[in-house]
Amino acid sequence: MNVSTIMNASPVTISVTETFGNALRLMEERRVHALPVVDAAGVYKGTFDFADIWKTLLPKAALLGMDSLTDLSFVSDAQEILREKLAGAGSRPVSEFLDRRVEPVHPDTPVKEAILLFYRLDEDIPVVERGTNRLAGIVTPWEILNALRD
């Protein structure tokens, strides 16, 4: 048993040329919480997920990951400002948001390694072909649990 035997080989993906707004709409329609982003040749470029959305809403200083600003408990709130920020991000291309918090795995990676990655990060895992880096599929927790429960 390795990742290729259990992965979802035809996941919902989004093109690297699409916009933030379309990505958000697609996630809502298809009820997924992460979208692998691919280019025209199908090469995996990164993942768009909720973290990317939260990132647009937060003050930049809070995203620096610095010990001297670990929380925002002292700031003021204004719903209007947050609304504006979300709307403002709608037309930006998804290519601006590509983080690679989970390094992609390969089809021959042991399923145990995939389980370890879920345990550590709880993010969907992209699977790419060795060498070409074309997206071969993704693994979500349900793929693993379904394979183990028959």
Binding site: P59, K60, A61, A62, M66, S68, L69, V75, S76
Partner: peptide, 14 residues
């Protein structure tokens, strides 16, 4: 500066 700059960025953004 490590202590002051993040707060400064927060305030100037607001």
């Amino acid at each position: 500066v490590l202590l002051i700059v993040p707060v400064t960025l927060l305030i100037t953004e607001e």
